[in-house]
Amino acid sequence: MAIDRPTTNLPAPIPPNRNAPIIIPDSAGDDDLLRQFDMEEHPQGGFHGLLEVIPTKADYILDLIRANSLWPLLSGLSCCAIEMISTATSVNDIDRFGMFPFRASPRQADVLIVAGTLTTKMAGPLVRLWEQMPEPKWCVAMGTCTTSGGRFKRSYSVVQGVDRVMPVDVYVPGCPPRPEGLIHGMMKLHELVKERRGQWRTYVDRGPQRTRWEGDVR
């Protein structure tokens, strides 16, 4: 087989500069109305993407479609994961609500059900998973460990609630919550999805949204 170019060694890795200020451009800065009413940092000010279009009938149907086929990401950490799987299996079936395919890849998932205790070592990978999920995405904190640290409130290695690292939409209490409780939480999430209500989204650097050519003044 012909190799057109010789393989070269990859360049030496450069460690990231963790002290540098992180500048994240966002489109709220261009909006005069927002600036005038001092709403630039308001969670519901600014246009951040598709979710903020004024809802019309077609969007209502789109919301229904989204709500009725929320695909969860398999992120079972601990005991609540077993109850989550029990919710997904035959006796309490969330396939009735369209949530059977637990996606292994975050790129294909809509909702992250954090089921189980989040420890400080696992917080990094979990936030990476959250960042890799494409919008629109929601987060459900299942169980008391993810709501507030739960029974591990004084522990040295448990994150006291997953909302310290990511925005949460629905909290489902219980240790572990019964499958019926998780389904109730999913019903609340359906309401949120249909009403386009949710938590403040972390600002994400989306990069240039379109190609900007030299001398472009648009």
């Binding site: 507030s148 640290g149 409130k153 004084r154 006291q160 609630g161 909302d163 310290r164």
Partner: peptide, 13 residues
């Protein structure tokens, strides 16, 4: 108590 720790009050709740 979690309230005594330096990370208290970080949670939006």
């Amino acid at each position: 108590d979690a309230a005594d720790s330096p990370a208290a009050g970080v949670n939006p709740l």
